[in-house]
Computed example of a mutant assay.
Amino acid sequence: MAKRSISKGVIKDIIIVGVGVLIIWIGLQVAFGTQNPFYVVASGSMIPVLQVYDVLVVQGHEPFEDIEIGDIIVFNRPSDHNRVIVHRVASIIDDDPKTIRTKGDANPASIPGTDFPITEEEYIGKVAYTIPQVGYVTQLLKPPINYVIIAVVIGIMVVKQMVKKKNEKELTFTDPINSENPDIIEDLSDIDKIEKDSEYSEHGETSEHGETSEDIEKKLEGIEKSVEENNTDEKKKE
């Protein structure tokens, strides 16, 4: 039962984290108007403006028609669309439909099939922000390091659930007096009744149970003896 409870707790935590990440990611996509708002610079074609491992925040809401010479844009390579390029707009080749030519700041010239012709079909977005060198994190998250990180996170969740269960068990306990010494509780209850009866005898009256003071004293002695015997038995057991 404990293992099942721990498993359920871990699964619940993973689902919460997963849903949270998904919500944040969808929110970023909506905010920046592109399926992937972040790109990592992988080459030195835009040095010194952009360095390798810089993270680019791309604004997809910027219309292609508003792109001007000098803007740094992200686009799919026009020759095969199998690679994402980030270069600066060098010129407007045509206005209808709008077609542009780009060039890497560190490159001597534009590369056909890579830098041009760029149309709205290849356009992804305009570079809005640059976060220097944060892309090194993506290198750390490559296999097998990413699997180690996932294992550590899951391990922390398991430990968290185990500690939680242990604390709950420590809070749940049985009263040793009630469970192990029921006779003593009954005797103490009788003593309470007898003490009430003795109040009558002290004033020379008969108790509500019809007992005299001598009867009450004998009964008290018997109960006290019983309690002492029970205590002795408990000490022997220990």
Score class of each variant (00 low, 15 high):
residue 82 N to M: 09
residue 81 H to K: 14
residue 133 Q to R: 15
residue 27 G to K: 07
residue 111 I to K: 11
residue 201 S to A: 15
residue 95 D to R: 14
residue 175 D to I: 12
residue 104 G to Y: 02
residue 13 D to Y: 01
residue 113 G to K: 04
residue 154 I to L: 12
residue 156 I to V: 13
residue 67 I to M: 08
residue 11 I to A: 15
residue 78 P to S: 06
residue 112 P to C: 06
residue 108 P to F: 06
residue 166 K to P: 00
residue 234 E to D: 11
residue 179 S to D: 05
residue 55 V to A: 13
residue 75 F to A: 11
residue 163 V to M: 11
residue 141 L to S: 08
residue 237 K to W: 00
residue 163 V to Y: 02
residue 231 N to Q: 12
residue 178 N to L: 15
residue 62 E to D: 08
residue 13 D to N: 12
residue 26 I to R: 13
residue 24 I to N: 06
residue 34 T to M: 05
residue 154 I to P: 10
residue 209 H to Q: 14
residue 173 F to C: 07
residue 29 Q to F: 01
residue 57 V to W: 02
residue 12 K to M: 03
residue 51 Q to K: 15
residue 120 E to M: 07
residue 31 A to T: 12
residue 159 V to T: 10
residue 98 K to W: 00
residue 40 V to I: 14
residue 133 Q to C: 06
residue 193 K to Y: 00
residue 72 I to M: 13
residue 6 I to L: 04
residue 144 P to H: 06
residue 74 V to Q: 03
residue 107 N to R: 11
residue 94 D to R: 14
residue 137 V to T: 13
residue 145 I to F: 05
residue 173 F to S: 13
residue 82 N to C: 00
residue 1 M to H: 11
residue 165 K to W: 01
residue 49 V to M: 08
residue 220 L to F: 05
residue 146 N to V: 06
residue 106 A to E: 05
residue 189 S to W: 00
residue 32 F to D: 04
